[in-house]
Design a protein around this nucleic acid. Structure first.
Lengths: 206, 206
DNA sequence: TTTCAATGCAAGTGACTACTTGCATCACAT
DNA sequence: ATGTGATGCAAGTAGTCACTTGCATTGAAA
């Protein structure tokens, strides 16, 4: 059952939360943004908190359509595409993520709303690397869990902090997912087919 | 010239900022924490903003004593020690960092206060890897800038987010700096002396 | 002792905030 | 036409907040 007023309020709240955080997202602001009367917020949600919590739940667990195949065939390009996609998603949500993290102590429910999304992404990548290990595409002794963490940390940090500290990240920005993916695979001792390896080398020469 | 009232206010403000952010750090709270009268804030600093800005400047650029040598001798252990130290520093500042990042749009000065610290750390690590490259300790073609970014992102993310999403990071926490360092060196194609490599393998078997 | 600077105390100002209340309007279903 | 639910409007409540003002106190220096 769709209710346009509810939806308007939820998306307005989510957007404003990303801009102003919990305290700075006032009920007056939300009402204006959603073009409804302020009292409607309390009629529909009971309180500002309840509205914001539901807004983050709705908009904060947007686990994007996953593109990592179950069976790795061309790891570098698969991983690059997936990384680019994840970074883009995180980037589009960066303000909200920053706010939720910031308010961990005062509103622990906020980052909590995003935990499922984060764990899902982590599990997907971890499985992919495990599968690669089973197929002997990487060093059997490689620390797959650590590489997973490292690649995700790079994507995450790039997504949420590049606009603040641009010099800390690889340039151009569009190449960063490929760069991180290559490094991650390399740290895993990835044995690429000779053809794929030749391609990689040529690209790096240019 | 030291002024105890000023110092008290600055450190109270910095601490409270880490807990409550800009808006949630009220002048009344600061005064109470510092055990001074609220009006003193305006006498000494003119406004809440000015106090908070100076507090973050004072407490937010704590670039810890650097332990990376100019000439790499034992990269894995040097890097591990350095990483552990950086992570510890970041961890101790994590609430403040989260707040400052969160408030980038509304108070861009806050993350700005930390930029020098971040760039300094980045430059140190980058130089270390470059030096390694000059000494032929790593692949001459390795992307040193990318590996720098990747290791720092891992340390950063671990420091500021482990308490929120513990399952995303390597365990035990105390081993994470070593794990990240190993991966980073590996991604750079680090040629460790045979003895050092043997040691590493034994440790992983246990 | 007097003076002066630093700080405390108390009251206040004007603006903001989440939320409530009572009445009115509108659109849809019966 | 009537009834009902959803929403708007307007006013209000009680509390919070950064900041100001006037007077008082304290400690150090001359």
């Amino acid at each position: 059952m769709t209710n346009p007023t509810r939806d308007q309020l939820l998306s307005a709240a989510a957007r404003l939360y990303g801009e102003h955080g919990f305290r700075g997202t006032t009920t007056r602001r939300i009402a204006e943004e959603a073009q409804v009367n302020e009292v409607t917020i309390f009629r529909l949600f009971g309180s500002k908190s309840a509205l914001l919590l539901e807004a983050i739940r709705t908009h904060g667990t947007d686990v994007s359509d996953d593109q990592l195949p179950l069976t790795p065939r061309d790891p570098l390009s698969e991983l690059t595409a997936w990384s680019a996609h994840q970074r883009s998603t995180l980037r589009s949500m960066r303000s909200m993520i920053r706010k939720a993290m910031s308010e961990f102590e005062e509103h622990p429910d906020m980052p909590k709303c995003m935990e499922n999304g984060a764990n899902t992404v982590h599990t997907r990548l971890y499985r992919y690397f495990e599968r690669m290990q089973e197929l002997n595409l990487i060093d059997p002794k490689a620390d797959v869990r650590a590489a997973t963490a490292m690649l995700l940390s790079s994507l995450f940090h790039d997504a949420i902090a590049r606009d603040m500290y641009p010099d800390l990240f690889p340039h151009p920005s569009s190449s960063a997912p490929a760069i991180y993916s290559r490094l991650a695979l390399r740290s895993l001792g990835c044995n690429l087919p000779a053809a794929a390896r030749e391609t990689t080398r040529r690209r790096r020469a240019s």
